Computed example of a mutant assay.
Amino acid sequence: MLGYLIGFGLFVLVALLVMYLSHGSGVWKDVKNKKNKALNSCGPIKNLQNVKIANGPVVCVKCPGEVEYRQIKVVTRSARIGSGNGNEIVLNDEFAEPVHAVVKKIAQDSGSYYELVNMSKYNPVQWFNQDINDYETIGYRRGLKLNGKEVFYIGESKIIVTCPTNNHKPSKTERLVMSAGAENRSDENNDKTQVASAKPAPEPTKRIEPTRVYNCMHKAD
């Protein structure tokens, strides 16, 4: 046992000696630079996760025993729904699992949309299908694209999700500015047309008639 300890101690001393001797070498500098690059690359990702989502969906929740709905606005890329205290939307429901469902944003080149994903095997989310006027089950880890206003049951809790709409409308001032800009552009075009028409028209090219030669000599009698 003592021999193992002595051997381990020697190994540690040799490792420390190698690190000390190579501290100023190029290899150590390369390792340090790679470490710094990795840390710097993680910074933007961490900051991106802290960015809030503008115009996110609104989730209205009414748990068993509650009379009024609670309204929660989703401001992150994904919001967990369940009985766990760490969720963005906490349900006081004995039939709800710790993480029962997730509302998340799907971003694509053609646009973005929100979907609700069922995370429960035993008490799956029930979605009210307006086409059949009845509730149907969402499969495990299956997502449903949210469109307008959707109604769900998670356990015994009723959930209403309202998707965002375009909340930026042009004001009267913007309309006036845009219309004035259009008028100015129209006036510029008219001025250019007038300037072009003010140039003197080129004179028509004169047609030169060829000289006619007449034979005035008469034959001798």
Rank of each mutant, 00 (worst) to 15 (best):
N40M: 15
Y113M: 00
T211Y: 08
V18A: 13
P170M: 07
Y113H: 10
L17C: 09
W127S: 05
S186D: 07
E209S: 13
G86V: 10
E66W: 09
G9I: 04
W127C: 06
E174M: 00
F11H: 11
T165F: 08
R175G: 05
C42I: 08
A96D: 03
N184G: 05
W127E: 03
S41G: 07
N85A: 09
V195M: 13
L10Y: 10
S197K: 15
I138Q: 11
I72G: 07
N36D: 15
P204E: 08
P200S: 08
A198H: 10
R141L: 14
Y214H: 10
S112R: 02
I45H: 13
P204Y: 03
I72W: 03
R77M: 11
G84H: 14
A15M: 12
P98I: 00
D134I: 01
E150I: 00
G148A: 07
N40K: 15
G24Y: 12
K219N: 11
P64L: 10
A180D: 03
Y69P: 02
H218W: 05
V51T: 12
P200R: 04
L144P: 03
S179I: 04
A15Q: 12
Y214M: 11
G86I: 10
A196M: 13
Q130F: 05
E209T: 09
S171Y: 01
V177S: 04
M19H: 11
F152H: 02
K172W: 06
L5A: 10
